[in-house]
């Protein structure tokens, strides 16, 4: 069960103040997935405004589960939350706060807030953070973060993010390749939507299925010189 699953379960069974500490803004993408299941169970308030925390005091209705999403992180915001936590708890309001690692210090610095959160703090695991960064296309950030984790925590992610390595080998191309290219330029319109296998300027085979053609190629004594190409429809 991943962090988001755990969080949904806890939010729908309980109320209170929850704090989801994420190490990257990329994790916000995953948190977006929380909103749909929660919206079926609760009034969900999205906020980027500190004022809305205060508005909760006025609009809160006892017995209603309220979920407040926010990525705010300034000290005043946390102090507002801290001063309102009794009201939020009593009225079954749930505060879901998404913050980045750099802002974790803000959470800790808010008086009494961490103790009131108690065991409800759910921290995204390193793997989930990295997957979220990859999903968001932030590969450089993911690599930097992964470098701080252990191999056991990373699993296959470490290999996935590892930069490619290169080494030279004896040339395996040659004139046969250029002759195959010449054949393609001349004949490709006759084979659109098919794989073709060429040995120099000779067509060894063509097929819409790659596996069927591969069997022909593998059995050929000069397979290493054969060029296989897909011709777009």
């Amino acid at each position: 069960m991943n962090t988001t699953d755990t969080l949904v379960r806890k939010l729908t069974l309980n109320a209170g103040i929850f704090c989801l500490v994420a190490h990257s803004d990329a994790f916000l993408h995953q948190v977006e997935a929380l909103k749909e299941p929660l919206q079926r169970r609760a009034l969900v308030v999205d906020t980027a405004e500190r004022l809305q925390v205060r508005m909760l005091r006025q609009s809160v209705q006892p017995g209603h589960l309220r979920v407040l999403f926010s990525d705010q992180n300034d000290r005043q915001f946390w102090q507002d939350i801290d001063s309102n936590r009794s009201m939020l708890n009593e009225n079954r309001s749930v505060l879901l706060v998404v913050t980045s690692e750099a802002h974790q210090a803000m959470v800790a610095s808010a008086d009494n807030l961490m103790s009131s959160l108690g065991g409800a703090v759910i921290e995204a695991r390193p793997r989930e953070n990295i997957e979220a960064m990859i999903f968001a296309g932030k590969i450089r950030e993911a690599r930097l973060y992964a470098a701080e984790q252990t191999a056991m925590e990373l699993g296959g992610l470490g290999r996935m993010l590892a930069p490619p390595t290169t080494k030279s080998r004896p040339a395996s191309g040659g004139d046969h390749l250029e002759r195959s290219h010449a054949w393609l330029r001349e004949h490709r319109n006759e084979h659109r939507g098919r794989w073709v296998a060429l040995l120099g300027d000779s067509l060894i085979g063509s097929d819409t299925g790659r596996k069927a053609l591969q069997a022909v190629v593998n059995a050929h004594p000069s397979a290493h010189k054969i060029l296989v190409s897909w011709i777009a429809p």
């Binding site: 004896p170 395996s172 191309g173 390749l177």
Partner: peptide
Amino acid sequence: RAYRASVVLVASSGEDLEVEAT
């Protein structure tokens, strides 16, 4: 799905380049 594999750029002149790639 992510795989790690060898992909070789084929040269007709000079040397091939083998890349261990994702």
